[in-house]
Write a protein that binds this DNA or RNA. Structure first.
Lengths: 195, 195
DNA sequence: GTCTATACTTGGATAGAC
DNA sequence: GTCTATCCAAGTATAGAC
């Protein structure tokens, strides 16, 4: 199917998800992609450059998925349901894990942290706008700054991913989404029709 | 001062904090501890065993600090203040970072995840009891299960640590603690004297 | 573009002197 | 307990054939 470049990115995502940053070597990624180790350096220059490219790829595609989610949900309860579904999909595909591995792995390599932060930057704005939109129709919407909530949401997703991967048990995390749905229902009932 | 074993553990904590799991080699840790690389294997058997010992050391000491915190705070507002102070101390000393690095690093090594999970297990119980105690006097205390809140709190701390280390900016995280304090004040005011 | 071969580096781990 | 010396495995990166 895809060319070697594309398959290397896909393989890098898989290795990051399954074995983490410290195991994401050129040899292991190339083996997964079914090609030679030297091609990593031909196409991307270095292993870290490939890993950043993989992160950017995941980030772009997931942002689109989240945007579609936001466009099709009205109530907070709907939003909680959709968020739960997307979170499950991310766990299955390892999208969030790619991010957590890159964040912690970036500590070891000079300059890598800045590049990861650059990938994460658009998510700040996206999450802020999403929270603002979601809380606009809520009675508590004017009480909390969207930036703060967005920061907490991103941090929460990262932390949940870490705990889930450690225990290999996503039930406690999913229970929190169910709890959020109940809370959303309550808030929706307080103002069923936005002005 | 301390014997070599103790200094190796201290050095392992420093390296994990500053450079992450993938850079925590026997050579680098021993150099930091001012001793020979072979002593890592003499005292601990393997590098991973040393890293687990370092994590256990941090876990034990921090649990004591958190317990003292809990014993000396009555209102939710007090609790938020204390939590903020402890979180700052943890950031400075890199205690939470040791945990996040071990969680993500454990993905690469068979069996390591289980050992990290064992260290984290007592924190589950501790956080659950702490949340139960803190919410006992609150009007919303009976509405949310302590286990769920505790899970969210632990995940939130992990996520905040990751974002803070990535951006090297703890202000957004500290702002969340200030927000929690305001919320705590409100809840405290609803029931100033517990029954 | 893709491969083989290789130079170079780093790391885990052990043996054995002291 | 601590050191030196060493073996072996794995990784990054490059040169050069095809």
């Amino acid at each position: 199917m895809g060319d070697t470049r594309t398959e290397l990115i896909a393989a890098a995502i898989e290795v990051l998800r399954e074995s983490g940053f410290s195991a994401a070597s050129a040899r292991k990624i190339a083996q997964r992609a079914g090609c030679n180790q030297a091609l990593v350096f031909y196409h991307f220059g270095s292993v870290n450059d490939l890993l950043v490219a993989a992160l950017e790829d995941v980030s772009t595609h997931r942002m689109q998925a989240y945007q579609r989610l936001l466009d099709h949900t009205g109530t907070l309860a709907d939003l909680a349901d959709s968020a739960r579904a997307v979170f499950q999909a991310d766990l299955d595909a390892g999208h969030v894990r790619v991010l957590t591995e890159m964040i912690s792995g970036a500590q070891a390599v000079r300059g890598l942290g800045e590049r990861v932060a650059q990938v994460l930057a658009p998510w700040r704005a996206f999450a802020r706008d999403a929270v603002r939109q979601a809380l606009a129709a809520s009675p508590v919407g004017s009480l909390v700054p969207p930036e703060e909530v967005a920061y907490a949401v991103v941090a929460g997703l990262l932390g949940l991913e870490m705990l889930v991967s450690l225990d290999d048990d996503r039930e406690p995390a999913l229970a929190l989404f169910d709890r959020a749905r109940l809370l959303g229902e309550t808030l929706d009932r307080l103002r069923p029709r936005p002005a």
